[in-house]
Amino acid sequence: MGTAQIIQNLLNGISIGSVYAIFALGYTLVFSILGIINFAHGAVFTLGAYFTYTLTVGQFGINGLLSGVSLDTQLPFAASIIVGSIFAGFVGVLLERLAFKPLRTRGADSLLALVSSLGVALVLVNVIQYLVGAEIYTFPQEVYGDIKPAIMFEVAGEIIVIRTVQVIIFAVCMVVLAILGYIISRTKAGKALQAVAENQITASLLGISVDRIILFTFFLSGFLGGLAGTLVGTSFGIAGPYFGVSYGLKGLAVIVLGGLGSIPGAVLGGMVIGLAEAFVPPDYSAYKEAVAFAFLFVVLLVRPQGLLGRSLIQKV
């Protein structure tokens, strides 16, 4: 592998890795508060991409209830992606009220939250299919403005090609991570979130409305999931209502690798898995999909608390 190839893989890896990171943060925020995994997160990812598509393009194909519909008002892409992700955030809030809160108030087995969130995922995915069909939707080239499709430069006599979309995705993810970092560590709501993650009862005794923080967390989680979906959609297209499923599963590998509930861990895990996938040799590229799960399996066996997680203390 030449230097140019290594640099190429590195750049591809950090671009997709940054999307894995913000997507996985959506899982990790919910896990840090409630200790459960929201299996509908992959569906929210899909939904976010469709929301943005609807707002900015608004033309539908030949299948589903909305077949042939084309909306007149189109928002600029920058506005659509924000509004679309906010919608996804509200879906996250709805999800918490529908699938998680009833179980929590009853103190039910946390396994049931797994089933109910999957039920919601099934509903969301099939509602999408019902409305717009199972076909592929792609964002037009010019959503990011009038830019060249690729940037080329030369290293050690070899040419490296970077798709401009990849650069933009990486930049957007970094900005979002910075804002999220600010919200969580500097604002009152963020500090309340940390307090609730640490100990719900103590937090509520200190006057924090745990219920509102949970809603806030689900909003953030949905926002991040929807945003990640849109970014992947602009890069590879929206490959039908089920396209979030594989990202949903990979996101699990990311959070376990980083440490369940650890925010820096989710970012590190996303980068590690993005890079590992990028460095899979072309001959074995069909096994790329298994890389994340090989990591997941090995990490669970060797270091179950993940790279940056706190080790669990077993209480008797």
């Binding site: 459960i36 995994i37 946390s110 699990l252 090989a294 669970l300």
Partner: peptide, 24 residues
């Protein structure tokens, strides 16, 4: 090795197992 894990961790490890079998 996998059954040293508990709860959701075991579930995730077995999900990984199923996916690895599938991709293989």
């Amino acid at each position: 090795p996998a059954l040293r894990l508990k709860g959701i961790y075991l579930a995730l490890a077995t999900i990984a197992f199923v996916e690895i079998v599938r991709v293989t």
